[in-house]
């Protein structure tokens, strides 16, 4: 039995840090896979409303995003505090939406051009007039599939 109780030195062995890089790499890969690169910096407030009857957008490459919201503080001086549309990296009017959609559509491969979805990321404090104008523009260029992108949550939280 003395086989198992052989060594009994006094000092504690140091904790090996050799696996620390592996752990960090694991974290790194996690973040690399679950996140997407910011393609444009947001210039508008973008707190999306909540909804619970939602559906996932299927594929990233079939989505064109339109942001709507009040300009953030640094832009509010120049552009005011009324909700604005952000297309790519700049502010735009509702009348520019059609051209933007056509341009983005032309960039996509041929086979995807008919299955594109427009994702409307609209701040919950924006007003419906602007959204309605955008929808009219979308109809003009025949971009009929729309997704009102939301956070998952109770829809009653939108009303306060």
């Amino acid at each position: 039995m003395s086989k198992f109780a052989k060594k009994k030195s006094g000092d504690l062995p140091a904790v090996s840090t050799a696996s620390l890089p592996d752990i960090v790499f694991m974290l790194l890969f996690f973040f690399m896979t679950v996140t997407v690169m910011k393609d444009s910096s947001l210039k508008v407030e973008n707190v999306l409303p909540n909804a619970n009857e939602i559906k996932k957008l299927e594929k990233k490459d079939r989505v064109i995003t339109i942001y709507v919201g009040a300009p953030t503080r640094e832009y509010a001086k120049v552009y005011g505090t009324e909700p604005k549309i952000q297309l790519n990296d700049k502010f735009a009017n509702a009348s520019d939406v059609g051209d933007y959609i056509l341009m983005e559509r032309a960039k996509k491969p041929q086979e995807l051009q008919n299955v594109l979805t427009t994702s409307l990321k609209v701040d919950k404090n924006a007003n419906m007039g602007l959204i309605s104008d955008i929808k009219q523009e979308l109809r003009k260029v025949n971009a009929l599939k729309v997704n009102y992108t939301t956070y998952e949550g109770d829809a009653f939280n939108n009303v306060d």
């Binding site: 840090t17 620390l20 890089p21 960090v24 790499f25 974290l27 790194l28 973040f31 690399m32 679950v34 996140t35 997407v36 690169m37 910011k38 999306l48 909804a51 009857e53 939602i54 559906k55 996932k56 957008l57 990233k60 989505v63 979805t117 994702s119 409307l120 929808k135 979308l138 109809r139 025949n142 971009a143 009929l144 599939k145 729309v146 997704n147 009102y148 992108t149 939301t150 956070y151 998952e152």
Partner: peptide, 29 residues
């Protein structure tokens, strides 16, 4: 570990977890 942390922080800063769910609707022609 330091190198990996550096990379991790870089990715944390440059990326955002975006929602990709919402209410689907088809606009009328």
């Amino acid at each position: 570990a330091d190198i990996a942390f550096l990379l991790l922080i870089f990715f944390l800063v440059t990326t955002s977890i975006e929602t990709d769910a919402g209410l689907d609707r088809r606009l009328p022609r």
